[in-house]
C-alpha cells in the first residue's frame, strides 16, 4: 500500500517537474512579448512596465516610432498568417492522404515494398542547405516561385514519409482478420479501407497530421528562398528586425500568436488519440 502511494507521488512529482520545465521558457516568452525595448535584455521574469506595443506592431505596423531605431513598416501579420494556414493545411491533407494509402498498401500487400519505403526516408536525410539552389532552379522554370503551390508541393513531398512510417506503424497493429471478415461479407477493398481501417487508425492519422502541419507551419529556409512578396508567417517573423538587432519582443509576440492555431488543433485532436479498440468490432 505504501509502495503504491510512493509510486503515485513520484509520478506526480515527475509530471509537475515536466510541466514546470516546459512552462518556464514559455512564460518567459510571454513576458518578453510584453516588455519594452529596453527591458529585453534583462533577466526579470515580469515586465516592469508592461506594454502592448509589441502586439500593436504586428497588426498595425504604421505605429512607427515605437522602436527607437526606425523599424521597417511591414504588412500586418494577418496576410502571412492566412497564407501559411492555407499552405500548411493543404500540404498536410495531401501528405496524410498519400501517406495513408501508401502505408496501407505497404502494410497489407507489400506494395510498395520495404525497400521503397526505406527510400522515402531519403527525403529526410538530406541537410537542406544544398538543396536550395537546385530547387530554386527547378521551381523557377515551373513558375512556382513566390507561389503558394510551390511551397505546398515541396512541404508535402518532404513530409509524406512521416505520414507513411507513422501510419504503417499503426496499421500494422490492426489484426488482418477484421479486414478479411469484412471482405468475406462482401465489402469492396475500398470500403474496407474507409470503413474499417480509418476509424481504427485515427490516432495515427491525427498524430502524423499534426507533425506535418507543424513542420510546414514553422519551416523557414525554403520559405525564405522561394518567396519574394507573398511571404509565409515564418519569413515574416524573421523580418522584425531593426538597424540595431532583432526585435525580440515583437518576434516573441508573433511566435506566440502564430502558435495559437497549432495549439488549438493540438487540443482538439486529443480525443482522436484514443483508438476505437475498446469499441470492438461487433459485427461478426
Amino acid at each position: 500500500m505504501l509502495r503504491r502511494i510512493l509510486t503515485n507521488a513520484l509520478m506526480w512529482l515527475v509530471l509537475i517537474i515536466a510541466v514546470v520545465w516546459t512552462v518556464i521558457p514559455v512564460m518567459w516568452m510571454i513576458s518578453l512579448s510584453f516588455k519594452t525595448y529596453g527591458e529585453w535584455r534583462t533577466p526579470s521574469l515580469l515586465p516592469r512596465n508592461p506594454t502592448l506595443d509589441n502586439y500593436i506592431m504586428l497588426f498595425s505596423p504604421q505605429a512607427l516610432g515605437i522602436f527607437i531605431a526606425y523599424t521597417a513598416i511591414l504588412e500586418p501579420i494577418v496576410g502571412p498568417l492566412s497564407r501559411t494556414l492555407i499552405i500548411s493545411a493543404t500540404a498536410t491533407v495531401i501528405a496524410v492522404m498519400i501517406g495513408f494509402f501508401t502505408a496501407y498498401g505497404a502494410s497489407r500487400y507489400n506494395s510498395p515494398g520495404p525497400f521503397t519505403l526505406f527510400f522515402t526516408l531519403l527525403t529526410r536525410m538530406l541537410p537542406p542547405a544544398t538543396f536550395v539552389t537546385p530547387i530554386v532552379i527547378y521551381f523557377t522554370t515551373l513558375y512556382l516561385i513566390d507561389n503558394i503551390i510551390g511551397l505546398i508541393l515541396l512541404y508535402a513531398a518532404t513530409t509524406v514519409t512521416y505520414a507513411i512510417w507513422i501510419l504503417k506503424g499503426f496499421i500494422d497493429a490492426i489484426p488482418v482478420e477484421w479486414e478479411e471478415a469484412a471482405l468475406l461479407e462482401g465489402a469492396s477493398p475500398l470500403q474496407v479501407l474507409f470503413k474499417v481501417i480509418i476509424p481504427i487508425a485515427r490516432p495515427g492519422l491525427v498524430v502524423a497530421g499534426l507533425f506535418i502541419f507543424l513542420m510546414a507551419w514553422t519551416e523557414l529556409l525554403f520559405a525564405l528562398v522561394l518567396t519574394n512578396l507573398n511571404v509565409p508567417l515564418s519569413v515574416q517573423v524573421s523580418k522584425y528586425v531593426t538597424a540595431v538587432g532583432a526585435l525580440w519582443g515583437v518576434q516573441a509576440a508573433a511566435a506566440l500568436l502564430s502558435s495559437i492555431i497549432p495549439l488549438v488543433i493540438g487540443y482538439l485532436i486529443q480525443r482522436h488519440l484514443i483508438t476505437g479498440f475498446t469499441f470492438g468490432l461487433v459485427r461478426g
Binding site: W28, V237, S259
Partner: peptide, 26 residues
C-alpha cells in the same frame, strides 16, 4: 488531462528559430 497534454506538447508549436532565440537569451 487534456489541458496538461496540450501544455506538454506546446514546445512543438513554436518555430525552432524562436525557441533558439529564447534559449539564447536564457
Amino acid at each position: 488531462k487534456r489541458f496538461v497534454i496540450s501544455l506538454l506538447i506546446y514546445p512543438l508549436m513554436l518555430p525552432p528559430v524562436v525557441v533558439a532565440t529564447v534559449f539564447y537569451l536564457f
